[in-house]
């Protein structure tokens, strides 16, 4: 099994119909191998988030084929996709999407509950994940008691906790200032390099994209550029 981890072929995603038809994705071909760090850029409305949702098995394409780790996702039902997300995918969102009034620890434990892990093991893994993002000592703080950068790190810890193969981050630094953004990027780079995690990240900022090893540019629902980039190239 040497094929790519993520393989999109002729993926389309249409919204509405007739006059109001929107081709959010209009034939996307994209293959991402294990251990890659891919940045996706493109103008607003070009279909970046739509593509991320399909890769993340949160949404289904209108047409085309999406294989994840060799499995054709199009044939999976809603619950099978949930199980796939639970085991192989971690999400990081622009708006953090932490549960309010819930401690950092409990937020990080959330995916582990659905993995059916016993309480003690869950605790230990969540503590470990929080340590990996540099949040020891903040386990019992609620999101409201944490800064934006810290909240995003909790979200990354949550994505890490279930030991996924891929982390999907849609504008993870969109709500953060430059200094915090760079910290988050350095964290992602470290996870990619040290743990071999595959990372797919959408960003609007060239500076952030530069942390990745490959840049994919979307325009009008298509991939218009796909190239190796970043400090680690050459």
């Amino acid at each position: 099994m040497t094929g790519p981890l993520i393989e999109l072929k002729g993926i389309t995603r249409h919204y509405g119909s007739g006059e109001a038809l929107v081709r959010a994705l209009d034939g996307v071909d994209l293959a991402i191998g294990k251990g890659e760090f891919v940045a996706i850029m493109g103008p607003s409305g070009s279909g970046k988030s739509t593509a991320m949702n399909i890769i993340g098995c949160l949404d289904r394409p209108t047409g085309g084929s999406y294989r994840f780790n060799g499995v054709e996702v199009g044939t999976l039902d809603q619950d099978q996709r949930a199980i796939l997300r639970r085991h192989f995918l971690g999400f990081v969102f622009q708006g953090f999407n932490l549960l309010p009034r819930t401690t950092a620890l409990e937020n990080v434990e959330l995916p582990l509950i659905y993995k059916g892990q016993p309480r003690a093991e869950r605790r230990a893994r969540a503590m470990d994940a929080l340590a990996r993002v540099g949040l020891q000592g903040r386990e019992h703080h609620s999101p409201a008691e944490l800064s934006g950068g810290q909240q995003q790190r909790v979200a990354i810890a949550r994505a890490l906790a279930s030991e996924p193969m891929v982390i999907l981050a849609d504008e993870p630094t969109g709500n953060l200032d430059t200094k915090r953004s760079v910290e988050i990027m350095e964290l992602l780079v470290r996870l990619n390099r040290d743990a071999g995690l595959t990372i797919v990240m959408v960003t609007h900022e060239e500076d952030m994209a530069a942390f990745a090893s490959r840049l994919v540019v979307f325009t009008d629902g298509r991939v218009v550029r796909d190239e190796a980039v970043g400090e680690r190239v050459g």
Partner: peptide
């Protein structure tokens, strides 16, 4: 939405 994203099934 968050629960579904981290892998909760509909019946859960």
């Amino acid at each position: 939405g968050i629960r579904l994203a981290v892998g909760a099934e509909a019946r859960q």
